[in-house]
Design a protein around this nucleic acid. Structure first.
Length: 260
DNA sequence: ATGGTGGTGATACCA
C-alpha cells in the first residue's frame, strides 16, 4: 500500500499535475496540502473519475488539505485539531483500510521570533497533545504532510545558512518534531535512506531546483505498530521538473502486508 | 542586507 503526501500550492493550478502524477505513481492514499480551494470548488468529481474518493477542508487563498484514497472507504473524518480553535484549514485526519491517516500542513512560521513563529510552536504543541491521545485509539497511524521543518542537517542544502536562527531549521522547531518522534512516529524516509541532499522543496527563486538548493520538509511518519511494514520510502522529483510546477515534490512510503 | 519567484486576486500577503 503506497501512501503519499504532496503540497500542490494551489490545486486549481496544479490539478493537471495531480492527475498525471496519480496515473504515474498510482498511490493508494494521498494527503494534499495547500489546495487553496473552498470546499464547493474542490474537484472531487474529476478525482473520482480517476478512481479516488476524496475528503477535504479548504478555504480561499490560503491553506486547505485533503485526503484521497482508491479502493477503500474514507471514514471517521476529523477536521482541525480537536480543542484547538483555528480558522486555518491545516489538518484533516481519516481512517482508511484500518489505518489512521493524519494529514498536516504545518504552519510556516515566517521568521524566528515573529508572531507567526510563536503560533507555529503553539500549533505543534497542540498537534503533539492530540496525536498522543490519538495513538492510543489508533496505533496503526501514518502522519504525513508538509511539516515546514527540516529534521537535521542532511535535510538542507547549506547548514551554515539553515541554522538555529533560521525558520524551518531552528532548534525549537526541530525539538517539536523530535517530540512527535518521541510518540513513536518514525520518519519513513530515514528508515531506508541515510543520505544527505535529498530534498522535497525548492524555492521558486534563485533557480533553486536546478542548483538543488532545497530542503526535505515533506515527511511521512509511521507509528511503532506500522514501522515493521514500511518496506520503502522515497521522493518523486519528477513533477518538480514539469512546466509551472509546485515548489514541492511528492513524497511516499510503501507499507507491505497492507491488503488492498 | 536585500530581493529574488509564484499564487491569489486586484493589493498586499503568504510562502
Amino acid at each position: 500500500m503506497k501512501i503519499a503526501s504532496w503540497n500542490v500550492n494551489s490545486l486549481n493550478v496544479r490539478l493537471p499535475h495531480l492527475e498525471q502524477w496519480l496515473r504515474d505513481a498510482a498511490p493508494d492514499v494521498v494527503g494534499i496540502q495547500e489546495t487553496k480551494l473552498e470546499d464547493n470548488k474542490f474537484p472531487d468529481a474529476v478525482l473520482a473519475g480517476l478512481g479516488y474518493r476524496s475528503v477535504f477542508a479548504g478555504q480561499k487563498t490560503y491553506n486547505g488539505v485533503a485526503i484521497l484514497a482508491r479502493e477503500h472507504a474514507i471514514d471517521e473524518v476529523c477536521i482541525g485539531i480537536p480543542g484547538f480553535d483555528d480558522a486555518q484549514r491545516r489538518v484533516i485526519a481519516a481512517t482508511v483500510n484500518g489505518m489512521r491517516v493524519v494529514n498536516l500542513y504545518v504552519v510556516n512560521g515566517q521568521d524566528v521570533g515573529t508572531e507567526k513563529y510563536e503560533y507555529k510552536l503553539r500549533w505543534l504543541d497542540a498537534v503533539h497533545s492530540w496525536l498522543s491521545e490519538e495513538l492510543q485509539k489508533h496505533p496503526r497511524m501514518v502522519v504525513l504532510g508538509d511539516f515546514n521543518i527540516a529534521p537535521d542537517d542532511r535535510d538542507v542544502h547549506d547548514p551554515a545558512v539553515w541554522n538555529d536562527g533560521h525558520i524551518l531549521t531552528s532548534a525549537a522547531e526541530r525539538q517539536a518534531l523530535q517530540r512527535l518522534a518521541g510518540l513513536g512516529l518514525h520518519d519513513a524516509y530515514r528508515l531506508h535512506h541515510g543520505d544527505a541532499g535529498q530534498f522535497s522543496w525548492w524555492d521558486y527563486r534563485q533557480a533553486a531546483f536546478r542548483r538543488n538548493m532545497g530542503l526535505r520538509i515533506d515527511l511521512t511518519l509511521v507509528s511503532d505498530a506500522l514501522r515493521g511494514t514500511a518496506a520503502a520510502a522515497g521522493i518523486d522529483r519528477e513533477p518538480r521538473t514539469w512546466e509551472r510546477p509546485s515548489d514541492h515534490a511528492p513524497v511516499w512510503v510503501r507499507l507491505a502486508g497492507q491488503a488492498l
